[in-house]
């Protein structure tokens, strides 16, 4: 495949652009499915409750991200992402979608996408952070000019736009949990900006295991 070099090879571990910053902040990591991921920051109980009571943020850069350029036959669902098993299909332009998924789910989706149009692997191009908790919107308000109010950005809302003054996307995955995508080269910068805002509001970085699952009911009524 002529674009094979864009994708993660089985022969070596992959590292998130945020990993060094996270390790510097006290992260514990382990290798899962070829990626060195941050499992926790040493206190999973506190991390889980931060996501329910204040705000937590976690590195999800290991998510597979695929760009699909197609002929525009599907109607353009501007601003609203489609939930797929293990992932999302996000409409960027009438002829361009961004697919996000856990690596195993992505592998299953890929053949179908190749049939629809041209697929390009952007996994390494984009970093991803989840920000979860009742103060998530307040965190975004510190570095992002997008309108993320409940009425303007319901669950499944998807917004391409500037994040921390750089090009990116925000996805509302479930109540009080948002995913923000940004250029991978900005990894360390993004960690600094988000950590600064979150900690100011009384939150903390968390491991991926502490995030509330997308398809689960919210923990609070």
């Amino acid at each position: 495949m002529s674009l094979g070099f864009l994708s993660i090879s089985a022969g070596a571990t992959a590292r998130s652009p945020l990993l060094d910053a996270a390790l510097g902040g006290g992260a514990r990591s382990e290798v899962r499915d070829g990626w060195e991921v941050v499992s926790s920051f040493g206190d999973p109980t506190a991390e889980r409750s931060a996501c329910i009571e204040s705000v937590g943020f976690a590195d999800l850069s290991h998510l597979t991200k695929l760009e699909l350029q197609h002929d525009g036959a599907r109607p353009f669902a501007a601003g609203e992402a489609l939930r797929l098993p293990g992932g999302w299909r996000c409409p960027v332009r009438p002829r361009l979608d961004l697919l996000l998924a856990e690596p195993s789910a992505a592998a299953a989706l890929r053949p179908g996408l190749e049939a629809e149009g041209r697929v390009c692997d952007l996994t390494g191009s984009l970093g991803a952070l989840a920000i979860a908790g009742p103060l998530a919107r307040e965190v975004f308000a510190r570095f992002c000019a997008l309108d993320l109010r409940e009425g303007s950005m319901p669950v499944r809302g998807f917004r391409p736009g500037s994040v921390a003054r750089t090009p990116g996307y925000v996805l509302h995955e479930r109540p009080e949990r948002f995913l923000v995508l940004f250029g991978a080269a900005y990894g360390q910068y993004f960690w600094e900006v988000v950590a600064d805002a979150v900690e100011r509001l009384g939150g903390r970085p968390v491991g991926t295991d502490s995030l509330p699952a997308i398809d689960e009911e919210p923990a609070r009524a």
């Binding site: 960027v92 391409p160 736009g161």
Partner: peptide
């Protein structure tokens, strides 16, 4: 036309 209203800096 795709994304809706944004600040001019976008």
């Amino acid at each position: 036309p795709n994304c809706g209203s944004r600040e001019v800096t976008d």
